[in-house]
Design a protein around this nucleic acid. Sequence first.
DNA 1: CAATAAATGTTAAAAATTTAACAAAACGGC
DNA 2: GCCGTTTTGTTAAATTTTTAACATTTATTG
Lengths: 252, 252
Amino acid sequence: MSIKSQDRIEALTRNLEVSNVIRLKDAADLLGVSEMTVRRDVANCENIFTYMGGYITLKSPAAGGLGYILDRERGSHTDLKRTACQIAARYVKPGDTIFLDCGTTIPYLANALPENRDITAICYSINVAEILCKKPGLRVIMLGGMYHASSASFADSNSVNAILNLNINTAFMSAGGVNISRGVSCSNPHEVDIKQAVLETAANKILVVDSTKFNVIKPMLFAKLEQFDMICTDPKCDPELATRTGCPLITQ
Amino acid sequence: MSIKSQDRIEALTRNLEVSNVIRLKDAADLLGVSEMTVRRDVANCENIFTYMGGYITLKSPAAGGLGYILDRERGSHTDLKRTACQIAARYVKPGDTIFLDCGTTIPYLANALPENRDITAICYSINVAEILCKKPGLRVIMLGGMYHASSASFADSNSVNAILNLNINTAFMSAGGVNISRGVSCSNPHEVDIKQAVLETAANKILVVDSTKFNVIKPMLFAKLEQFDMICTDPKCDPELATRTGCPLITQ
DNA sequence: CAATAAATGTTAAAAATTTAACAAAACGGC
DNA sequence: GCCGTTTTGTTAAATTTTTAACATTTATTG
């Protein structure tokens, strides 16, 4: 299969992720080749496309959203993250205004949120927003700004101000590393201001991290452990840690 | 609808729950009636079946989802939208800062944007952002705010200010209706302020609408046709319109 | 740069589908 | 049973899709 052909297949796939369906002739126009070439491309990729009566569709729809995230996270403690987030979700009450951090853990919390419970969720990352916006009966507030691919989040100079003007009931914060003596850290500089602003204004602060994050140190330190009211993690967490964190450690 | 017809529809449904797809002629054989009768049965049950290119599928997502997806696209002129957006994409130049409106049309433009061309894209809807954020070498700025499900977009009191502080090179605007005498309209009140702020500040303004939007009037009027530098649409657009819009009409 | 292979385009005929109009059959009320 | 209505079938023409064969272009290699 030639590179051109692969490019066409990729372009077609991306297009189908938007439109779901395309007619053969429209695909030919779109890709700037003849219908015959599209036919041959599609026939070469039986595992990707479904072709029926002149229409092309993707064989596996919904490549975005949580499923996509799950896929990319395979082998990166998905189960632990999910568990930690299910525990954290228990601390969301009807009427709450909650803050959801960015990263690869918090999407599981977004997913675990109850529906139709008069909850307002504030977020600043695209993968969390995608999930929140699909939940029925949930108010969603998005903090805008410039996109940072490293954390799939948005941030700019107004972010801190915007946060300080919000009344956050409970903040659910993630982290790349938790070290008892050094504190809580992450990898991306642009997240620090936002996290600190949230910690400053939120009434309750819950750290949501799976057990593999303990004793890890990432470049940007953004908080001390004592600043959190609670840590939600998974049962694989060393129970001996609980006595030294300076705040309650919930593991189940 | 006769009892016989109902029985056939039930039998067909049961069959599709097993096989997912059946050809029209096979369904006719199966039910012991003519193809024409099956056609009419299926047409009478638009909410149950999806029919395309000689194949019948169930609309219910449980049955594999294909029919459900296909149906959402029917009558929504995806091909026209795609065409209009491909035309519009030609007016994006390297180094540009562009604004992308919300709605069901502009995602096709987001998809058609060139990669790695030093382009900054400003958006305020989740479905446009999802696509932009996946594009390599594209700077993305998201305008935040409260989520409005009707247009999948974010807006709040700061949105207008944020827009007026941006230097937009070219704005790509969508609309629900275009009427030569009344002007350009949309359905959602919260979009109006944003659209008007963009029209106020952007150097170039391009209206991107498929040909079915002409002579339609939606509740919220937000601009006069003369405010746009150009309209990008599809070749199905009545060429006679071009002489009366007050701005260039690009159809191919 | 020629020779070869691979990829793509063009075309026309065959097959399938859509559409519309009308004929035939079945049904229901009187 | 009769009559009007609804349902179903038939047909033919228009349109679209499919297939296959061959021409042309593009890439690759020595």
